[in-house]
Write a protein that binds this DNA or RNA. Structure first.
Lengths: 230, 230
DNA sequence: ACGTGTTTGTGATAGCGGTCACAAGCTCGT
DNA sequence: ACGAGCTTGTGACCGCTATCACAAACACGT
């Protein structure tokens, strides 16, 4: 089992476990944790936790649980968080600025190392301690700063072109915040974060809840009338 | 088929189709579109598009394609975008401010109707044309503004409590940007957007790519040496 | 040394989601 | 009126994911 490739779904949960483990280690100073406790903290099923961790190897002790320090080390290593990952951010609008200032990135070795835009009004200004550069300088900056990850916070119509420039500059990992579909070669990883889509999904289920509530209400009234009639 | 419940995966893709269809209607003024073209624009498989749309009912014409206007109407209706959805945003930090200013929200009937915080330095200030209110005023604001959706952009340790306050105020849909696991009752929809997790997932695959490249390189050298030796 | 209680690791199973392939059905030209 | 050429709608299949259930293995008290 421990030599099989790690499933995507598991990879997506490892950061959640990592966070929970850091909490246990730093805040509470505990040494071991059971799959049940970890599952509770991560908001998932205990069996899922065990199966996920088993892909990393068998680092638990039956009857005891998992050694927190060791697990932290293994997950950190597996996620590649032992090195730091300089990132380039293209598109210095509201969202781009917020991300440039965002502390959450720098936490785990992610560091926004360069900012890019194409607007002459923005290029040259300083944001979050970095000088905004023109997108044309991307290649040099990537080489110079050792940039590995590209983040897109441009308007939608520019997203595809920026992605292509990122790929052209040698980046293989892209995080897209622009509300647009971006196509890249299969050897490039791309993940999207789309606020508007998330809201629309919530809207769908919210509407369904309201429709069900309305139907239940109508039914209740109808039955009430029938009851008083009978 | 058209009366079966719509799968979650399909719901998550409807907004993508919607965007593509708006593009086709507004930018190019087309009347019909084939599943293949729509699939290309949405970055998915054509069969998947057809199956997804078939859940809404059979609105296509064989040999021709789908009527864009009609499809737009159906998807809009199904996603509940015919009404607008006022949202509350709690946590006025960098990210909260950026979202408050973000234009992408207001596009499809989503409107940030109230901002909340607990910090006295922030409460009372004006952000994006709205006065930041204290979280204690949540209930009144929800009733007053007809708020349906809660957005969490607080630091992680405050996320769970804010979520509970949202639920307590009657909200059934929550979007969580805080890097923390939030548990709510099963009748409440919660979706999370976690920038740090996305980066860690990218990091995992990036590292694997580098490891594979390194192994390939080592192998090439080894074979080269063996070749010259033999 | 041994039994009891606990927790892991994993085979088995069920369900969901993606893809293929093709029949059904439409339009249009002749 | 009819055949050619498309495109939809969907049954069938396959792989991935989640969950269950239980044997294996450990610690600890006596």
């Amino acid at each position: 089992m421990r030599n099989r490739p790690i499933p995507e779904a598991t990879v997506a949960r490892l950061p959640v476990y990592l966070r929970a483990l850091l909490d246990l280690a730093e805040e509470r100073g505990l040494l071991t944790v059971s799959s049940e406790e970890l599952a509770r903290m991560a908001g998932v099923n205990a069996a899922k936790v065990r199966k996920d961790l088993s892909y990393l190897g068998s680092y638990g002790t039956r009857g005891v649980g998992y050694d927190i320090e060791y697990l932290l080390y293994q997950i950190t290593r597996e996620l590649g968080l032992t090195q730091d990952w300089p990132a380039a951010l293209a598109g210095i609008g509201n969202l781009g600025r917020a991300l440039a200032y965002y502390k959450g990135f720098s936490e785990r070795g992610f560091r926004i190392a360069a900012l890019f835009d194409v607007d002459d009004e923005v290029v040259g200004t300083e944001v979050a301690g970095l000088q905004v550069r023109h997108l044309d300088e991307l290649k040099e900056a990537v080489a110079q700063e050792g940039i590995c990850i590209g983040i897109i916070t441009t308007p939608p119509h520019a997203a595809q072109e920026v992605a292509e420039r990122f790929v052209d500059a040698g980046l293989k990992s892209i995080l897209n915040f622009a509300p647009a579909v971006v196509n890249v070669a299969p050897d490039v990883s791309i993940r999207k974060v789309d606020l508007s889509i998330e809201l629309q999904i919530l809207s769908f289920y919210q509407q369904r809840k309201q429709a069900i509530a309305a139907a239940r209400e109508a039914n209740r009234r109808l039955e009430g009338r029938l009851g008083s009639d009978g």
